[in-house]
Amino acid sequence: MSTSTIKDFRNGVKPNWCPGCGDFSVQAAIQRGAANLNLSPEDLAVISGIGCSGRISGYIRSYGLHGIHGRALPIAQGVKMGNRDLTVVAAGGDGDGFAIGIGHTIHAMRRNMDITYIVMDNQIYGLTKGQTSPRSEDGFITSSTPEGSIEKALSPMEMAITSGASFVAQCFSADIKELTATIEAGIQHKGFSIINVYSPCVTYNKVNTYDWFKENLTKLSDIDGYDASNHEMAMNTLMKHNSLVTGIVYQEEKPSYQELVKGYAEQPLAHMNLDLQPELFRELVNEFI
């Protein structure tokens, strides 16, 4: 069996991100993680939203679809339904997943399809040049909130756990080792995995900077006896640290959507013979006579 390397996932396209943007590391971590898992580039589908972050699918050598703002998750779920043998990774920004697409995010977590969702959370709208996001902190000044944001920031981790996600993790793009390992764990997890990655926007977010995160983040692996299978511990820890933690926050073994659908073919729908059996056609027609 051939082994894949990170080079197999590189396509030579130069990203149009600002130098220093956190998204570079997310791209690298996906590429390295995929290689570590020995995936073939053609068996990986990266489905991304719209935003600076959404460009990521164009920078990874694999199948990929860069769709419309906020809809990476339903497209990704459709891809998985169409071909359950593919490794499907959805990716996008905090605006993509927690503003315009938040309905899909919550329902995707409830549904628990076997896909991985990576949010590049820079707590701002990068592509549209620096407006507030649902992840912006109270008082955060942006072009759309010149007096400071007066809406409460959303807490993705708590929301994910209460929405039924079976793998909930948070990372920091500068900690590429933990990020890569977490992406690998997320892909290997049977069910929906959400990984919220603090991925600093060096151009528009002058508050939540690399230094700010280094100062404020706590690694769960540094907390003695932290048990990601313990629901209560996960919620308490998030509250205690104001959600500023990294690592796998919560993980639960349960059947994925794919495993629960009654009658769903083992074979990918994309490779099935589409012709209806004539006997079945006759039977269905007769129901209307």
């Binding site: 679809l65 891809v79 899909h104």
Partner: peptide
């Protein structure tokens, strides 16, 4: 699905994957 946007984009995803949806 949760709404019609999810419905149509899931169908697009599935068709992109090669199924008929």
């Amino acid at each position: 699905t949760e709404d019609e946007i999810a419905a149509v984009t899931m169908a697009i995803g599935s068709n992109y994957a090669g199924a008929r949806s």
